[in-house]
């Protein structure tokens, strides 16, 4: 199991921040997931080793946090907020548009592996609602048309990279 150089550097640095190994767990899991795409059995075993926990304990933690997943997802994870502020501003229409455009429902991944879709809770964009996060990037003040454009941009970006 190998992680990138920046990951290892960050891990090393963070290790000195806490009196217990275990405290590294949550952020480390998220960074590992960002690199591997999901928390595979291999990643779980490796991180368990590093933070001196059993795999069971690591899985208990993973399953608690909604951003962490043990299942592969698309390269771009489209997270649509439908919580109150977004709801009032049309968040559900944005979600509908994503479903239609990507041809998938929540927690599904497009066959080309490019997109997955999620309905999420408030992401701190209430004043700029409705909002969507694609991976870590915020897209705010959305309309269904804008959403289309954004998805198109990601499709382009994703397929270009692949070529």
């Amino acid at each position: 199991m190998r992680f990138s150089e920046p990951f290892e550097q960050r891990f090393q640095e963070m290790a000195s921040h806490y009196p217990t190994r275990r405290s590294l767990l949550v952020p480390t899991l998220l960074y590992a997931q960002d690199e591997v795409g999901f928390l595979s059995d291999e990643v779980v075993a490796e991180i368990a080793r590093r933070v001196e926990l059993t795999e069971l304990e690591v899985r208990n933690v993973i399953s608690y946090y909604s951003m962490l997943t043990t299942q592969p997802r698309g390269k771009y994870n489209v997270q649509v907020c439908t919580n109150i502020a977004c709801l009032l501003m049309g968040g559900e229409e944005i979600l509908d548009r994503c479903r239609l455009k990507l041809g998938i429902r929540e927690k599904e991944t497009t066959p080309d592996g490019l997109f997955s879709l999620e309905e999420v809770e408030c992401m701190g964009a209430c004043c700029w609602a409705p909002a969507v996060q694609v991976n870590y990037d915020f897209h705010e003040h959305l309309t269904p048309q804008k959403m289309d454009q954004i998805l198109d941009q990601y499709t382009k970006k994703g397929t270009e990279r692949r070529r």
């Binding site: 059993t54 795999e55 069971l56 304990e57 899985r59 208990n60 399953s63 608690y64």
Partner: peptide, 20 residues
């Protein structure tokens, strides 16, 4: 022995065995 854990959260919370 620590063979049991709790996974997921909210109403999905469940007791789990150590080997999945």
């Amino acid at each position: 022995v620590w063979a049991l854990g709790v996974q997921h959260r909210g109403v999905s919370s469940t007791i789990v065995p150590n080997q999945e």
